[in-house]
């Protein structure tokens, strides 16, 4: 493929998403992802992290309206495409590592075709070539018996195995962009580390840009170069990871960092983000909503 090196892998411009009742889920969200870059997307539960990933991948829930803004993949505006072309463009360039490896695989279909389907469908590979690629990737994610796994059903495999398979499936078509939506949250603590390590290795090897959704600041420090902090669907802070940890501009971000339990200080009391700060942010959000709705009515 022909790609100008200066082009951003992902660019989200002023994205807004609302529910039919007017509730705003994403508020003017903008962010960019350079080729090969890992950007962490952090924020508390319900902040809209998954919603951003879903918007990029074109799987917003049917109730959610993408009300304004645009998403560009390697400079290609998705708004400009017809739905069919849009689907194949997104499928060609991006992939997902989902949160729950149990439900992300179809329970009544074998693993093999679930990995090879997109390769055959979108990239027009032959079945044989796709199968070879699947086996290669399964081996790469340290699955011991790829031939057997390919003919297994999801319920025959452990959670860690399934997540490895989903990682293999995500990297198999060599996408430019991977959205990883809390890929370790549903796993055992011991498995979490291995999975995270695996994603990091593969990301480095392939140079894929990753939008990494998490609420674990420890993970952020390990994996990402940039961080976007989200609150109530709004970007509070967008900065290089180092800068965030050294001197975050926003008190909420500082709260998040302080709230992260550090491994070498387990005795230290757990400090959540101060309640009054969250209350203040919620008031700000409401005030902004008021202005937004009044502005809209004019």
């Amino acid at each position: 493929m022909t790609t100008q090196p200066h082009e951003k892998t992902l660019e989200i411009r002023q994205l807004n998403a609302t529910l039919p009742n007017g509730m705003r889920l994403l508020r003017d969200v903008s962010l960019t992802l350079e080729p090969g870059e890992v950007r962490a997307l952090v924020g508390e539960s319900g902040a809209g992290k998954s919603m951003i990933g879903r918007a990029v991948l074109g799987i917003l829930p049917s109730a959610v309206v993408h009300s304004s803004g645009d998403i560009l993949l390697e400079g290609q505006s998705l708004n400009a495409l017809r739905p069919k072309t849009r689907r194949s463009t997104v499928a060609k360039m991006s992939a997902l590592i989902p949160q729950d490896p149990l439900t992300a695989l179809n329970p009544v279909r074998k693993i093999g075709p679930q990995i090879t389907d997109p390769l055959v469908r979108i990239h027009r590979w032959s079945r044989d070539r796709a199968l070879k690629r699947a086996l290669e990737l399964l081996e790469r994610v340290h699955i011991r018996n790829p031939e057997r796994v390919i003919n297994s059903y999801p319920h025959e495999l452990s959670g860690g195995m399934r997540q490895r398979i989903l990682i293999a499936a995500a990297f198999a078509p060599s996408p430019r962009l991977i959205v990883a939506d809390e890929p370790t949250t549903a796993l055992d603590v011991t498995v979490q580390k291995q999975i995270l390590q695996l994603i990091r290795e593969l990301q480095r090897e392939t140079g894929t840009a990753v939008l990494f959704v998490t609420h674990d600041m420890g993970v952020v420090a390990k994996i990402s170069q940039k961080v976007t902090v989200l609150f109530a669907g709004r970007v509070l802070e967008d900065a290089p990871t180092e800068a965030i940890f050294n001197d975050a501009t926003h008190p909420y971000t500082r709260g998040l960092i302080a709230a992260t339990p550090t491994p070498n200080a387990t005795a230290e009391p757990f400090r959540p983000v101060p309640q009054d700060l969250i209350a203040q942010l919620q008031r700000d959000t409401q005030a902004e909503d008021m202005r937004f709705y009044q502005g809209g009515r004019k």
Binding site: I59, A95, R121
Partner: peptide
């Protein structure tokens, strides 16, 4: 509403 449906759609299934 299952996640595997989203997976298929991301994989380009009509």
């Amino acid at each position: 509403h299952m996640d595997y449906v989203d997976s298929a759609r991301i994989g380009g299934a009509r």
